[in-house]
Amino acid sequence: MGNMVTVDTHKLAEGSSFYADGQLQSVTVNPRYGSGYLSQVRSLTSGISVVIQNFSLHGEGAFRLPRDQESCPPVIAFFTCYSGVGQISYDRPRIPLGNGFSNINFPEYTAALSMDVKGNTPIQTLIVCMELAVFAELTGKTGDELIEALEMLNFHAGERQKKDWSRSIDFAQRMCGYQALDSFINHPRDTLFLEAKALELAALHIRQLEHLTGKTDQREAASQHVEKIAQACLILKEKMAAPPGARELARKVGLNHNQLVRGFREMFGLGPFEYLRAIRLEKARELIAGHECNVTEAAFNVGYSSLSHFSKAFRDEFGINPKACA
Results as ranks from 00 to 15, higher is better:
Thr6Tyr: 02
Phe18Glu: 06
Ala20Cys: 09
Ser26Asp: 05
Ser35Cys: 08
Gly36Val: 02
Leu38Tyr: 11
Gln40Asp: 11
Val41Leu: 10
Leu44Ile: 01
Asn54Lys: 01
Phe55Leu: 15
Ser56Pro: 00
Leu57Pro: 06
Leu57Ser: 10
Arg67Asp: 11
Cys81Thr: 14
Ser83Met: 01
Gly86Leu: 09
Asp91Met: 05
Gly100Arg: 05
Thr125Arg: 11
Ile127Met: 07
Ala133Gly: 15
Gly140Ile: 06
Gly143Arg: 08
Glu148Trp: 05
Phe155Ala: 12
Glu159Phe: 15
Arg160Lys: 11
Gln173Met: 15
Tyr178Ala: 13
Ile185Thr: 14
His187Arg: 15
Arg189Thr: 06
Ala198Cys: 08
Ala203His: 08
His205Leu: 04
Thr213Arg: 00
Lys215His: 14
Glu227His: 01
Glu227Lys: 02
Ile229Phe: 10
Lys239Pro: 03
Arg247Ser: 13
Lys252Ile: 08
Gly254Asn: 02
His257Pro: 00
Leu260Ser: 02
Leu260Ala: 01
Val261Ala: 04
Met267Ile: 13
Gly269Arg: 04
Tyr275Gly: 14
Lys283Gly: 02
Ala284Pro: 13
Glu286Lys: 13
His291Leu: 12
Cys293His: 01
Asn294Ala: 12
Ala299Gln: 12
Gly303Ser: 13
Ala313Gln: 08
Phe314Tyr: 15
Gly319Pro: 04
Ala326Met: 02
